[in-house]
């Protein structure tokens, strides 16, 4: 990698790190982060494919309340860098498959870094308290921006370190991996998406909505249906169900007429 690419990779990593906590623009999602790293290193197509594959695994990863999910930012950035390094000698397929497998342990490492940053942020808000005491707007703003910067550095430093490792070492490592290991990790990669989906299901599942899961599962076997078509189906089904449920509630009510405009009109006659 040339120095300009490395610099740009570190910038992308910085943005991914900030977004890992802010969760607004989604620069930390693999689909975006891997694509950007692919672009700045001259391997856009491979970056996009890696991003798409990782995104499928990371779909259900979300920070809820004070809980922290596996860290998509470090997983996406670090595995994209490893892939780019590996592309030099290993073939594209192997480089992508191996970096997907490496993404998972990396997401765990990222988790600890996030928790570390969230702890360091405690004294930072105490400095904000002190600034608030003097009505020092600048002080409050500065500490807020520093805290965000800290989250950016959380990913930027590991990314810079990975860039420094010589490409030969990465490819040697990739090539040294026996077929059963890389093949097995690819098999595992096909299965781990289930964990993310299970996390989503556990958040939303009630006995009432399980039938909709079954509908989606069965209908997805029709390969003619694109995801957009499935989305349209899902929205329609949700609207129809909610509408019918409202009707049922009104019908099952005491017949007082308040929720039933047609009944009111008939009664008035």
């Amino acid at each position: 990698m040339n120095p300009i690419s490395i610099l740009l990779v570190v910038v992308v990593a910085f943005f991914a790190g900030m977004e890992g906590i802010l969760d607004e623009f989604q620069f930390h999602q693999p689909l975006v982060a891997c694509t950007l790293i692919g672009l700045v290193t001259g391997h856009p197509t491979e970056g996009i494919i890696l991003g798409g594959s990782l995104q499928m695994i990371a779909l259900g990863w979300a920070n809820v309340g004070a809980a922290v999910a596996p860290d998509a930012a470090l997983a996406a950035v670090a595995s994209a860098i490893i892939m780019v390094k590996g592309l030099g000698s290993a073939d594209t397929q192997t480089a992508i498959a191996t970096s997907i497998a490496l993404a998972v342990p990396l997401s765990v490492a990222g988790l600890f870094l996030t928790m570390l940053c969230r702890t360091i942020a405690i004294p930072m808000v105490h400095f904000m308290d002190a600034a608030a005491e003097d009505a020092n707007f600048r002080g409050v703003e500065m500490w807020q921006l520093l805290a965000i910067g800290l989250q950016g550095i959380r990913i930027a430093i590991p990314a810079a370190m990975l860039c420094m490792i010589p490409a030969e070492a990465v490819t040697a490592m990739l090539n040294a991996m026996p077929a059963w290991l890389s093949g097995g990790m690819a098999v595992g990669g096909g299965m781990v998406a289930a964990v993310g989906y299970a996390m989503v299901i556990n958040m939303m599942a009630t006995p009432e909505v399980w039938p909709f899961f079954a509908l989606g599962f069965v209908l997805a076997s029709l390969s003619e249906l694109t995801l957009i078509a499935l989305g349209a189906l899902g929205v329609s089904i949700a609207l129809i169900y909610l509408g019918l449920k409202d009707l049922a509630k009104q019908g099952g009510g005491s017949g007082g007429g308040s929720g039933d405009p047609l009944g009111d009109i008939i009664n008035d006659y």
Binding site: F213, L215, G216, S221, I237
Partner: peptide, 23 residues
Amino acid sequence: TEGASILGMFIIGALVRRWVSIT
């Protein structure tokens, strides 16, 4: 919330079929 849960469960059902691969 309920509408989102219905849509979400429907889509997750589809994603499980399409993207979890065991052969």
